[in-house]
């Protein structure tokens, strides 16, 4: 009995702590439904009704749909490429470890590069992109996102491929499958736990990335959602009605994605950074 009542006490305590913890998000969300005058007069009062004008104004002014599309294109293209290229590369690096001595060296180079933070090489990276005419292009962001994320993905796949038994592949080979078919039809499906992890980890990181696209993309039509929001805030400083509604519009897609796949996402992010 004593133990049960203390559990109930803890449950109530943690619920209050969570509400307190989420207060900045709750208060921001409530204020998106208030006209500017009401926000400035009293930020902690509840909205008087379902006032949606802020969202409508922001949607138009930041050209939400265009920016959403930019973010989606960058995310989807990068992630498909990261998954395909890293899985192929990790497969050969792992299977040819004994046959081709270079594969160990390449793998070690990938792993060592994971200690280089983007911030430490951002200056020459931007110079290189200028030189390659990739500044202010979505392609540039995509190419460098792929390159930046591949070493970790290769590392994750590499560790897992070792656990996939060789016998399956040998059988398929006897039946006349070439290497690519063996990979596509037999190995890749077995790697799906890692694929899920690579997808969620990189979706969150690429979608939320700010500094890199901020340095690369300058024209409004090419901006991603976080950049558009930042731009927007610079122009309408202290116009909290638009800033807050804009913030919630920007985080809506990724937060929905998070609540649908939360278990995989929490695991993916944590595992990805522990191994990295």
């Amino acid at each position: 009995m004593n133990r049960r009542s203390s559990l109930i006490f803890l449950e109530v305590l943690i619920i209050f702590a969570t509400i307190f913890f989420l207060y900045p998000i709750i208060i921001g969300f409530l204020n998106t439904f208030k006209p500017f005058r009401d926000i400035m007069a009293d930020a902690i009062s509840l909205p008087k009704g379902l006032y949606l004008t802020n969202y409508v104004t922001v949607w138009d002014q930041m050209q939400y749909f265009k920016k959403l599309l930019n973010s989606l294109v960058i995310c989807l293209v990068s992630i498909v490429a990261i998954v395909v290229l890293s899985a192929l590369c990790a497969y050969k690096l792992s299977r040819d470890e004994k046959r081709i001595p270079a594969s160990r060296i390449i793998f070690i180079a990938f792993v060592s590069s994971m200690v280089i933070p983007f911030h430490a090489i951002m200056i020459p990276t931007i110079q290189e992109m200028k030189f390659l005419n990739l500044i202010n292009t979505l392609e540039g962001v995509i190419i460098f996102d792929i390159g930046g994320c591949c070493p970790l993905a290769v590392f994750l796949y590499h560790g897992f491929i070792k656990t996939v038994p060789l016998e399956l592949e040998e059988c398929a080979r006897i039946d006349g499958c070439n290497t690519l078919r063996v990979f596509v039809q037999i190995v890749f499906p077995l790697l799906s736990p890692i694929t899920v992890m690579v997808i969620v980890l990189n979706t969150i990181n690429i979608w939320n990335d700010f500094l890199f696209p901020y340095l690369v993309l300058s024209s409004k039509s090419k901006m991603t959602l976080p950049l558009a929001l930042f731009q927007f805030v610079g122009r309408y400083m202290k116009e909290w009605d638009k800033m807050l509604a804009g913030s919630f519009l920007c985080m809506a897609p990724i937060v929905i994605f998070y609540f649908i796949l939360q278990r995989y996402i929490i695991k993916g992010i944590v595992m990805g950074s522990i191994k990295g």
């Binding site: 969150i204 939320n208 976080p226 985080m251 994605f257």
Partner: peptide, 8 residues
């Protein structure tokens, strides 16, 4: 908070 853009 880990899935929300830091600038937001």
């Amino acid at each position: 908070p880990n899935v929300i853009t830091l600038i937001i």
